[in-house]
Simulated scan of single mutants.
Amino acid sequence: MTEAIIHGWILALGLILPLGVQNVFVFNQGALQPRWIRSLPAVLTASLCDTLLITLAVAGISIVVLNVAWVKWSLFTAGFFFLLYMGWNIWRSSPDPGSDTGTGPLPPARQVGFALSVSLLNPHAILDTIGVIGTSSLQYDGAERIAFTLTCVAVSWIWFFGLSIAGALIRSLDGGGIWLRRVNRLSALIIWGVAVWIGRELVIEIISS
């Protein structure tokens, strides 16, 4: 049991630590909202989406996603165009709470919508979750598999809450919004980088088919 918990903790942390689209969005909402509590829709939605993906991965849905060509193509295509759009919105967003551009301090409904999109239209994150966590869970049975799954889920929730709090702390230290503007630009570049990776994978899939 202990081995499964430690394995789940290290594995989930290793997958979620790199700067991905989910992380960027949750951090930005924590930083851009006038009060931290207003970023909770983004935090909760991203956490619930990860919980769903981890559960499906452990349940064996990875076989469908990884082996059915049209599923991968559809996922990669939708993810590529959405990330281009997301990157553009973040690039031109403003740290001013009164701004209504891009992914600034979004209202709750739009936070939920964007968080769903960056979680479920991000092939990189989905393939990592399904391919790595799903495959790793196969070595455990019964209570150990449950412990492994719950640990991965717990890491995800702790991480997203921590990201939003970190964003709020940076906002409190950045009165002029200079650092937040720089963070937005860096975030956009990261997202476009992920989009380029997805586009490359899509081209490889098409050529090899």
Rank of each mutant, 00 (worst) to 15 (best):
T135R: 09
T55Q: 07
N89T: 07
W91Q: 13
F160P: 00
W88C: 01
I37A: 12
A109E: 06
L84R: 05
C152K: 04
L40D: 07
W179G: 06
A154Q: 01
G113C: 08
L116T: 10
G199M: 12
F80I: 04
I146F: 14
I207K: 15
T103H: 05
I63C: 06
L48D: 05
A46M: 01
S209F: 11
L121T: 07
A4V: 01
P123Q: 02
V118G: 12
P108W: 14
W197F: 13
L53W: 13
A143T: 12
R38C: 06
T101A: 14
D128M: 13
A115V: 04
P107G: 08
G8Y: 06
T45I: 09
F81I: 06
Q111H: 07
A109H: 11
V118Q: 12
N28I: 10
L32I: 03
I191D: 09
Q22F: 01
K72Y: 02
V21W: 09
K72A: 03
L106S: 07
Y85K: 00
T135F: 13
G104C: 08
T55N: 10
V21S: 15
N89G: 15
S117P: 00
S164F: 11
I170S: 00
A143Y: 10
V132N: 02
V68G: 00
A125H: 13
E144D: 15
A69I: 11
S94R: 11
Y85W: 15
G142Q: 09
G20C: 01
R185I: 08
G30Y: 02
V65L: 15
G193M: 10
R92H: 15
Q139V: 10
F148H: 08
C152D: 08
V26M: 07
L180E: 00
R38L: 15
